[in-house]
Amino acid sequence: MGKSRDIIAYLQAAPLMAVLLAFLVVPIGMIVVVSFWGATEFSIYPAFQFDNYAFLFGSPVTYKVFFATFKYAFITWIFTLSIGFTVAYFLAFHVRTQAMQTALFLLCTIPFLTSNIIRMISWIPFLGRNGIANQTLISWGLIDEPLEWLLYSDFSVILAFVHLYTLFMVVPIFNTMMRIDKSLIEAAYDNGATGLQTLWHVIVPLTKPGIMIGTIFVVTLVMGDFITVRFMSGSQKANVGRLISNDIALLQYPSAAATAVVLLCTVLIVIGVLLRFVNIRKEL
């Protein structure tokens, strides 16, 4: 009985395992291998050399770009967390009927299911030199000349990140908040805690797992991004993902692979640290 149960379990898990092996594990292995290869202007050739890494770590650009990547991740995290927490808190504790809760939650989720690229493009009429933001500010008399830093800047990159990824905070935080036993909150009030005290000493600690899961999503999405930075900065800013995609465009695969390996290690270390605070499977 025990044996056949195990076999069935393996058969059921086999398709998932096959996909992950073929399209995740083996490709990553390939990247690691190729990161030691050499490249000419037109082709790549097998080798075992550390040139790619030596070049990567020897270039000041690398450090600047990694710093920029962390900067984007950190600032985006602050904003998505504060917005996401507030929205989830409103939905979980202030909306009274379940139907209304579901409806509002769906409203938040729908944009996630539409195209990210279109959502980025849609900021252009807002932020451009003659965009809505500038026109409004001028008509209010707040500024005389259009602000140049609204589009194609760090500002627009981070704005787009927050726009695209806040939902990844809202969903897990909302999910954890819905599981908080409401009597705990009543107990806090009965003991004379103010609303803010209850929020800080009861709700926030109990919501930590959700916050962690949201953080993992947001941080990894931002750190691995290359398209938002390219598009929203008008190719004027760089992060690690763009470094990789530029190398790919120049057919410098070994160098792209070396950068990819370093990025992967960085992301995995960050995740490893975050996972110490939460057991994902228990929180679903």
Partner: peptide, 19 residues
Amino acid sequence: LAITSLVIPSILVSLGVGL
């Protein structure tokens, strides 16, 4: 492994499978 698949920078999957 499934979690890794979710959080791994997408460009790595693209690059690896392409290679």
